[in-house]
Design a protein around this nucleic acid. Sequence first.
DNA 1: AGCGCGTAAACTGTATGCAGATTGCAATCT
DNA 2: AGATTGCAATCTGCATACAGTTTACGCGCT
Lengths: 230, 230
Amino acid sequence: MQSSEVKQIRRRQVIRTGTTVEQMVRAIADMIVTGVMHPGERLDELSLAVRFDVSRTPVREALRELGAMGLVDREPNRSAVVANVTEAYLHSMFEAMSELEAICARLAAERMTVDERHALELEHRASARLVHANAQEDYAAHNTEFHTRLYRGAHNDHIYEMVTQTRARLAPFRRAQFRLPGRLAKSYDEHDVIVTAIMRGDAAAASQAAYSHVAIVSDASIVFASDKAE
Amino acid sequence: MQSSEVKQIRRRQVIRTGTTVEQMVRAIADMIVTGVMHPGERLDELSLAVRFDVSRTPVREALRELGAMGLVDREPNRSAVVANVTEAYLHSMFEAMSELEAICARLAAERMTVDERHALELEHRASARLVHANAQEDYAAHNTEFHTRLYRGAHNDHIYEMVTQTRARLAPFRRAQFRLPGRLAKSYDEHDVIVTAIMRGDAAAASQAAYSHVAIVSDASIVFASDKAE
DNA sequence: AGCGCGTAAACTGTATGCAGATTGCAATCT
DNA sequence: AGATTGCAATCTGCATACAGTTTACGCGCT
């Protein structure tokens, strides 16, 4: 290996932000979810160290984190291997997402403050413009914000954690959905049903609407995911 | 530091199973949830290394894992600090547990195979004996098994993961509940309602019963937790 | 006295070395 | 030939050394 200054510079050029380990976690996570690495494939520490031009120490820490995220399986004295994110497991994550989102919607309908309700409605109305403009990128950003407000509105920190973690793990599989023709408008309509239910404090309706909304997204995304898996 | 053989032997005597890191994770997690360490308290790597008689490397890996578990907060170039598991957050975890358990019960009522239903019922009936004997330890073990069957019965791997993780984080706060007088019998009765609902495939009833059951446990445990916090 | 500033101590981040575990292969035996 | 045991190569687990960063303190200056 070369002198440490050179390495620092080289790395800084390639990768953006955060500590070395964070960067590696993101990079490896990406390789796994995008299918560059296949389930069962071994993640040899030394190879990764060479590949990222670091020592084995940060590699080990990254693998530990990925293990905690469920992206790799680890056993003592064995290589970490890419976890088997089977289509079945993916499906279970989407289903879980629907359930969690339904819970959030229900609790939000019951618990959101007046201010939160207002903000949610404003956020929602503001996105109508983006639908008409078919501004997919911007709508996606709005969409994230909208759902985040929903999660926050449930006023339960642990549920918020679970739902955002699940969401993060699903993100790579969900990216393409807004490219489906007409999806933006449908998404907006679905949001509308949720917002309306929440505004009038109808927990059951909000829950139901949120469940269906996510289920629809899931279907669209799973199609995409299986395409990618070729 | 002394020679490595000596250290190995000493450690083997003190701690039971798993790798050094796993042991440290458990030990530190215990100290945090039992209140030996207080929120905001710094977890200095070197001090921990000395304390557990290991080097900083396993300490760092343990801290990373604890960070992923949400028990400690980490920032680059700063000490890890004990996360603030406030009573509010604890409450949110118990509420989340109720919600998750309700989902599992509902899905289990719909999806459990004939074999799984049988096994659940047998497991449940077998525990009646333990109630009469007031065998708290054994009943606790049975209780774990019972709930695990419920979680598995939902046939959703991601939900299973979330619920077991949440359960693990709550475990230390829940330990004492069976010491409350009459709790064993009540627990058994509550299980009975759940089992009955599941056996006849009544998803709504199962869900409702599971929600209440966990809510009751939560109440009992939170009392204990706030006692301990003195 | 109060405020910067510089420096050293303390601590985290990373590299590297060594010991023990695992695995695959080969030589031997049945 | 197939099974088995021993060995070597490979890899993980941990320790230690070193580099970079943050923090705290004291000194000088205003």
